[in-house]
Amino acid sequence: MLYQIISLLLEVLAGVLGGACLLRLYMQYQRIPMSSRSGNPLGRFVFALTDWLVLPLRRVVPALGRWDMASLIAAYLLQLAQFGLLWLLAGADGGLFAVPILAAFGLVRLAISGLTGLVIVYAVLSWVQTHSVMSDVIGRLCAPPLTPIRRLIPLVGGVDLSPLVLLVLLQIASIALGHLQGLALLVT
């Protein structure tokens, strides 16, 4: 029972912080202003959660074009810490080499979950028709994966089904990722 409680707490902590690092990476790639002057509350929140880890990493990890590699490395390190601590709590049984593999799969799973959450919030906000900075930011974040789907699937009775299609595709990706993770752990 104690292992499950600690596992849950580590998953939540690594998920929130790692997800914020991935969101920082994606927002910077999309060139979404995140400063306090921009009025973007999501950007301020992401900075507040991630500056302590990302800023020191930037001193040693350069950006790769528009990609902030320090944010990506920070998210991976958080996943690595989560799985490393769980490995230690489980008695350090099994090979330590599985921990970096689990962390890589955890990072991809975190990205899929984060995009799923963004699409759900985007869909709900589209029903309400709010005109806020937050809905604009979420709309800009969701536009790149939704645009190709919108080209393939027309409006049905004036309703945009692209968020639903993207959610189904993300669930399929999550299932496939779980299968690949199982295969990767069998091989190692």
Results as ranks from 00 to 15, higher is better:
A123D: 07
I112R: 06
V119M: 12
I138A: 14
A104W: 15
V108A: 13
M134N: 00
V108E: 05
H131K: 00
I138M: 08
I101E: 10
L107A: 06
R109C: 13
R140W: 06
L161C: 12
C142V: 05
Q129F: 07
A123G: 08
A143W: 15
L146W: 09
L155M: 00
V156E: 05
V108W: 11
I120Y: 10
I153D: 08
G139N: 02
D136M: 08
L161G: 05
V119N: 13
A104K: 12
A103L: 12
V128H: 01
R151Y: 15
V159F: 05
T116E: 07
L146C: 05
G106N: 14
Y122G: 00
V108G: 06
P145V: 13
L118P: 12
M134I: 09
W127A: 08
I101Y: 14
L107R: 10
V137M: 07
L115I: 11
A111M: 09
S162I: 05
L161E: 03
P144Y: 03
R140P: 02
A111W: 15
A103H: 14
F105T: 13
P154G: 05
R109S: 14
G158E: 04
R109I: 15
A111P: 02
R150G: 06
A111Y: 14
A103F: 12
Q129N: 06
L152F: 11
G117S: 05
I153N: 15
Y122N: 02
S132R: 05
R109Q: 12
L161K: 09
P100A: 07
L152V: 11
L155W: 14
L115A: 12
P144D: 04
L107C: 02
C142A: 11
I149L: 10
S132T: 13
D160N: 03
D136H: 09
R109V: 13
R150S: 13
C142D: 10
L146Q: 11
V119R: 14
F105S: 12
V121Y: 03
R140C: 03
G139M: 01
G114P: 08
S132M: 03
L118M: 10
C142R: 08
D136S: 06
V137D: 05
R140V: 01
R109F: 14
T130Y: 01
G114V: 01
G114M: 06
A104E: 15
R140I: 04
P144E: 05
V159A: 02
V124I: 11
G114F: 14
L161N: 05
L141K: 12
A104R: 12
G117F: 02
P144R: 01
Y122R: 10
G117V: 04
Y122D: 01
L110H: 13
S126R: 01
R140N: 06
I153R: 13
V124Y: 04
Y122T: 05
H131M: 00
H131C: 00
R150A: 11
R150I: 05
C142Q: 03
G158W: 09
V133G: 01
I112A: 09
V124F: 07
L146I: 07
I149P: 08
A143E: 15
Q129M: 02
L110F: 10
L155T: 04
A104C: 08
I120S: 06
L164E: 07
P163A: 03
V124S: 08
G117C: 03
P145G: 04
S126V: 02
D136R: 09
L107F: 05
R150K: 13
L146P: 13
L155G: 06
G117Q: 06
V121I: 10
V108M: 09
L107P: 08
I138V: 09
P148L: 14
R151V: 08
L125V: 09
A111Q: 08
